[in-house]
Design a protein around this nucleic acid. Structure first.
Lengths: 204, 204
DNA sequence: GATTTAACGGGACTGGAGTTCCGTTACGTC
DNA sequence: GACGTAACGGAACTCCAGTCCCGTTAAATC
């Protein structure tokens, strides 16, 4: 389809990389401050000290910019816990999620990125990949628990990790309920209870 | 602040009601088809056979239109199940949610409305109210289960109902995983396991 | 370090979303 | 059924997000 390669791919060196870094940083700030619908590429360019044309050429839509930011975030991996018990590990995971979502900047940023994913196919794909990566990073807690005999063999690790985050995001997005450390602990405890009961044994 | 009352409140009769109905129906179609970011009030007016000025006067922002649609949807209550067991009730609830979210039109509409809620404060409030209403409608399943002695006294009914939907929305929004009846059954089973384990005893 | 051209950047341009103005219609009230 | 005015609707207007054009800079390759 596109006979010409996408801008930034042929010469990803010095200047191009600096422009991308500056734009992504400013875009993150703008998304956290004003939300996805207020994302104005001209404003981003001005704040990043970059030509407006450049931003429109490399990220022709706001959704593509959000997608690129998500791809960048997915690369910044943070290590999982290993407390020795499934309950301990998942509780730490849940508290980390709550800490992130209740952080002023981070919480707004995640909301904006989810909004972007609901408005743009590229951003949607990038967001899904981001969560696949994050879930994969914590899946080891579950396989370790299986090895220790805490939960049944055949338990789907990703489903358990997803079950921890799910009620926290449901509160953030659907009900709008405020989150605290108790919510994190309950989310982890519910996931452990489900795993012990064998709810996620034998998936696809 | 606003000395003049909002348009549509003083004379909510015939014509005004017809305009609102036509605009909300068309807005729902447009949101399901093209998503929230593509919502164009001029286009809505044209399709609804209504003056562009009228739409801008009554719903000055796309988010307000989404909020009004959500308020309308919240009024259309649908009854909960009563199968005689918590597991049976929650499974029916979960399957209903999956059926809704996997429906071509409904799934897209909900995504668009959640996007709207992430871009606009009015829409956010309306969405949160919508889910509070929906959760409240099914809370009786949990209080019944407590009365039957299936789960511990003091269990928070709303938390249990929310726990059923949470993983389904997490799949829809965060991971992008396709949903099926098995996912519904597992969501319900996990909520039951958590409730039996007393995870949601003694909240707020 | 010379050459090629990918990528950047300023400035002019354009299309359409959103606003304003004002005449028309019909809801609510007596 | 007559009146006052809330709400509707057409048309002209404004403003700026997004595009286009073309000259400039610097990354990649030899």
């Amino acid at each position: 389809m596109t006979s010409t390669p996408a801008p930034g791919t042929t010469r990803p060196g010095g200047r191009t990389a600096r422009v991308r870094e500056a734009v992504l940083r400013v875009a993150g700030d703008a998304l956290a401050e004003d939300g996805f619908d207020a994302l104005d590429l001209a404003e981003i360019a001005r704040r990043a000290g970059v030509g407006k044309t450049t931003v429109y050429r490399r990220w022709n839509a706001p959704g593509a910019l959000a997608a690129d930011l998500l791809a960048d975030m997915a690369e910044q991996s943070l290590p999982r816990s290993d407390t020795g018990s499934l309950h301990g590990d998942l509780t730490e995971n849940a508290r980390l999620v709550v800490k992130t979502l209740t952080d002023e900047r981070q919480g707004r940023l995640f909301k904006a990125l989810i909004a972007a994913s609901l408005c743009n196919a590229q951003a949607a794909e990038a967001l899904h990949r981001f969560y696949e990566v994050r879930i994969g990073e914590w899946a080891g807690c579950v396989t370790d628990a299986v090895a220790r005999g805490e939960i049944p063999a055949g338990t789907d690790p990703r489903a358990v990790v997803a079950a921890v985050s799910a009620p926290l995001y449901y509160a953030l997005l659907n009900t709008g309920a405020a989150l605290n450390a108790d919510d994190a602990d309950r989310a982890a405890a519910a996931a452990v209870a489900g795993a012990r009961a064998g709810v996620w044994v034998g998936e696809g």
